[in-house]
Every structure is written in structure tokens, then in C-alpha cells.
Simulated assay, not measured.
Amino acid sequence: MIILSHRGYWKATEEKNTETAFLRSFRLGFGTETDVRDHDGSLVISHDPPTSAALSLDRFLEIYREEGAGLPLALNIKADGLQAALKGVLARFQVTNYFTFDMSLPDMLHYFVQNIPVLTRQSEYEPQPLCYEQADGVWLDCFQGDWIDEQTVSGHLDAGKRVCIVSPDLHRRPHEAFWETMAGWETRRSNRLLLCTDFPEDARARFQE
């Protein structure tokens, strides 16, 4: 199982989606999830509506190229119509190990046209993942409770999909019991299974060492 840090590996709230968090994540060998939007004609890193202070996507990828090249990137798409610009920037920085997710359904269709890898979402609110056949994988989210089980994960892996599990801590719920359950799964040995968490070092100690 591959560990992704959520908005970089931050240790204080103000570090989320900052150079500090990304440097820490890449230097420790973690894949990284982050948020992509547009601002004033450029792509930036920002979960919320951005300001001129937002980190540029170019700068994020410079850090990635220097410190984390080859590690997986999960790009949470926060605005419509970014496909062509995003594909161009990723090509310029020679990024190949990545996927996108969380865009609107109409926008998702344009990502397929551009041959950009997309993870469709499955959650308690979306029991049937949209555009499953076209999607590269599934973003498994658990907003209210720990509904994800090994049978669900195994089914997606058997279908040839990548699977990224959202750890309960991303929704401010305790994660220890769910991690304990996951530790007994045979599927956790798959290199097509990822876990996105705010506690990447703890996850590495629990699942990889």
C-alpha cells in the first residue's frame, strides 16, 4: 500500500498546502495529495478560493521535481475547465505518476477526452461510482462512518482499478480502529492501493515497516 500525505505533510494547520509541507512530504518519500485551482489565468495550489498569495502549480512542481520526482501525486480538482492547462504543465515538468479526482461530472468527461487519469468517487452518498469503466480508479471516501471493507476494495482491484482510501482522520474522525481493521487485509499488499492521511509517518509505521 502506498501512503499519500493530505495537502502535504503538515504538522500545524497553517502549513497545509505550503512549501514547508510539500518539502517534508517529498523528503520523507511520501506521495502527496493537493488542491488545484485557477487564479488570474494561472494554476495554483489552494483548497479554498485563492488569493494572490497562493502557491503556483509551477512552484509546487519545481519542488516535486527537485525533491520527490516519481512519487505519486493526487490532484484534487477544485475548478472546471483546467484540463488543457493542467496537462500542459504536467508534461512540461515530465510528471507521469499522478491522478486527478473530485471534479464535477461534466468536467470529468473532458479529462477522459484529454487522456488524463481520473479516479471516480465512491462513498455512502455515491454508492455507484460514476463513469466507472472510463476511470483509472476509485477514490473511496467515508464522510460519516467507516463503511469501507476489504470486499469493496478487492472488487475494484480485481477490475484493474487503482484504489485510494480516504483515512477517517481527513474528516476529523478517529482512524485507529479502521487502520487496525485494514492491517488484516490481504489487499493492503497491493501497489495499486493507496491511503490518503494526515498522519503519513504513523501510517508507514503501521502498514509498511
Rank of each mutant, 00 (worst) to 15 (best):
F207T: 04
G8E: 07
L90S: 06
E33N: 10
G137F: 02
V118N: 09
Y132N: 01
L23N: 04
F60R: 03
E180W: 02
V163Y: 02
H175Y: 12
V138D: 07
H39E: 02
D40G: 04
P129I: 05
N191K: 13
D202R: 13
R27H: 10
Q122M: 12
P117S: 11
A159G: 06
S5M: 02
D80G: 12
V44W: 07
V36F: 08
E209P: 00
E209N: 07
G31Y: 01
L57M: 14
V138C: 04
P200L: 09
H171L: 09
D48H: 12
E19K: 15
M103I: 06
R204H: 10
A84P: 00
I148P: 03
P174W: 02
A135T: 00
G184R: 03
V44C: 14
M108R: 15
L157S: 05
W185I: 03
P127T: 15
Q151D: 13
E33M: 09
V44G: 08
L73V: 13
L109H: 08
C142A: 15
D35I: 11
G160L: 08
R162S: 04
L194Q: 07
D102R: 11
W10Y: 15
V36W: 05
E62P: 01
I77D: 10
L28Y: 07
W179S: 02
Y132P: 00
R162F: 06
S167T: 12
L140T: 02
E33L: 08
A54G: 07
D107V: 04
D48W: 10
L119I: 00
F178D: 09
E176W: 09
Y111H: 14
T32M: 08
D136I: 00
S5K: 03
F30D: 10
F207Y: 01
N17P: 13
D169A: 10
P50V: 06
D198H: 10
E209R: 05
R59F: 13
F26D: 11
E201C: 04
I165M: 07
D136P: 00
Y98F: 15
F112R: 05
C196Y: 01
H110G: 00
G145Q: 15
Y64M: 09
D202P: 00
A21T: 12
E180Y: 07
H47A: 11
I77V: 15
G31W: 01
E180T: 14
N76P: 03
G88I: 01
G29T: 04
D198S: 06
G88V: 10
W179D: 04
Q144M: 13
M1A: 10
P49H: 03
R192N: 13
L194W: 12
V89W: 08
P127L: 15
W10P: 04
G29E: 11
W139V: 02
K87W: 05
F93M: 06
E66W: 02
D38K: 15
V153I: 15
V44E: 10
Y125H: 14
L71M: 12
G8C: 06
H6C: 00
I148T: 05
R27I: 03
F93L: 04
D136L: 08
I165C: 05
L195M: 08
Y111D: 03
W139L: 05
H156M: 10
T18A: 11
S42M: 13
G70L: 08
R162N: 06
A183F: 03
P117A: 11
V166W: 01
G137S: 03
E133H: 11
H171E: 12
A74H: 09
